[in-house]
Amino acid sequence: MKSFLSFILIIVSVNTDLYAAEAGMPQLDPTYWASQVFWLILVFSILYISIAKFYLPKIKNNLDNRENKIKEDLEDANKFKDQSEIKLKEYEKILENAKKEVSKIYLESKNNLDKEIRSKKDKIEKEIENEIVKAHREITALKKNSITSIQNISVNIAGNIIENLSGDKLNESSVKAVVEDVSKKNLDKYL
């Protein structure tokens, strides 16, 4: 097909006038060939120069800009993502530390409170014991005092009773000795 067409073309270009007249193919009429070639070269040169010098660099620049921008944005996004991950880790660490501290503080304050409570309790218990001991001492002192005063009273009463009954005035020291003797014997019964 290709070779056939080129064959026809060669024949036709040899006998242009003849063939053009017969088939009426305006393409093979050489009147305006020079004009077409001239204008083709002129127009195409202008087109080529303005495209090569002006438009293609512009379009290329545009495309490169976009590619760079996309690349930069992607890099930025990745960087920010990494940063946010680091921040998140930091935050988690802080949170963990805070939790640890909270439990530590809780334990500490609990221990302190316990200690304080215990020490206060001990102190109070000691005070109470002291008070009790003191009270006991007072009581025993009172008992002793009461015994001597009871003996005195009993010596007096016994002396008076004997005086009234017998009318003799007795020696106070002998009465006292008897009372002391009796009370020593019977003291356990009263106290």
């Binding site: 305006y32 004009s35 077409q36 204008w39 127009v43 202008i46």
Partner: peptide, 15 residues
């Protein structure tokens, strides 16, 4: 003959 033709016109139009 380098006259301006309709072919030239359409070349210029396309360009």
């Amino acid at each position: 003959d380098l006259s301006f033709t309709n072919a030239s016109l359409f070349m210029i139009l396309s360009a």
